[in-house]
Design a protein around this nucleic acid. Sequence first.
DNA 1: ATACGTATAATTGTTGACAATTAAGAGATT
DNA 2: AATCTCTTAATTGTCAACAATTATACGTAT
Lengths: 222, 222
Amino acid sequence: MGQIAPKIASTLSSRITDTLRDAIVTGEIKPGSKISEPKLAEQFEVSRGPLREAIRRLEMMQLVKHVPHEGVRVITLDLPRVLEIYEVREALEGMAAGLAARNMSAAAIDELYGLLDIHEQHIKTSAGEYMQQEGDYDFHYKVIQGSGNQLLIRQLCGELYHLIRMFRNQASQARGRADLALQEHKQLVYAIEQRDPQLAELIMRRHIARSRDNISTRALTT
Amino acid sequence: MGQIAPKIASTLSSRITDTLRDAIVTGEIKPGSKISEPKLAEQFEVSRGPLREAIRRLEMMQLVKHVPHEGVRVITLDLPRVLEIYEVREALEGMAAGLAARNMSAAAIDELYGLLDIHEQHIKTSAGEYMQQEGDYDFHYKVIQGSGNQLLIRQLCGELYHLIRMFRNQASQARGRADLALQEHKQLVYAIEQRDPQLAELIMRRHIARSRDNISTRALTT
DNA sequence: ATACGTATAATTGTTGACAATTAAGAGATT
DNA sequence: AATCTCTTAATTGTCAACAATTATACGTAT
């Protein structure tokens, strides 16, 4: 179907990269913890070579911090750091929405409407929060893809995305915004359909900025 | 002074990363060429281990493309790709300018004025294009730093920057925009000094968009 | 002459051992 | 008791050899 091929990584190093990445993102390996090469190598049943290559990639992804001759530690997402992520997200996804309004195919826009319907059903039946989260991501993912800018796509879907996922899993998250988010999504699709880049960008930026404010204030009250 | 400490990388792997990166960016290693591990290892007089780790980092930096069991090739910056870079740049540096208007210290703003003066002198004495290019980068660099967003800084100064440098060295570049650029820089500093984020962002985005248009049209005529 | 198959060579991927640096702990001194 | 130093242990960084995969070249058949 319209899905991306699963594409099993054919090299050990890249498989380890994916596995380690997910382990960090899901919190299986805890934030701030030191990564021991011998330990992990034994755990994955591989040699340290490919493991180190994987770590170098995660280092560039900002998921771990490397200090020469000391080791690597999993990053910790404190509030200021999360807010920084959302600022970058606002800039990039805003641009993506604008470009999507220019470049997205009619068929892809139809698919967006499909996602809106699914989202609406989930709210009415008050389906699990988890599905909501995933649904939200699917929607943003589709808009980003619609931009057609390969670099933008890779930056957002290949790097920032994992940081955002990590945050979501870490501080299981903001409720009560589901229906508001749906309204904002509807407005966005409308702007894209009207081929109005400026409006699409504005809506997306506000959407993300609200999300950011929500995180910010919620952090203060808890 | 006011410069970042050179900080010699204390590990072979990171030294190779920097050296290789610069070799690619300056065109010493030509775009599209295949990178042979044995050859480079001999050339750098190191083993393949650290070299491969360096390559994995460059891979994440988008400077090389890796195909399992085939090898890595240096990317080629064709026009569509460069335009994509400038779109991302517009989004990120626009955000950076806005944040700079909020967060930049008075001292840092003074330094911006200093750079404007230097830039102006260079134009009057019609100093070398090279200095102009570097000067332009210094200015943008300072604004980005002024944003205070560490993630944004790293994305722009640590990844995109090298792609932009690579493009500049490859297609040695657009002339006659020096004085216009200076005017735009002046406007930007003014907006930052007035603590007007929206205006600062707008000016920066237009500045980069013009640069992009310039590249686009120039590519058509040559 | 061209196309195909096979065998060889070269390159990438992986492993385990070695060297260098840093962290940890025991012991002596103040 | 606390601190400093020296020794030891563990971890990171590097290397060189091995395995697996892909590219190359040669020979053969059509």
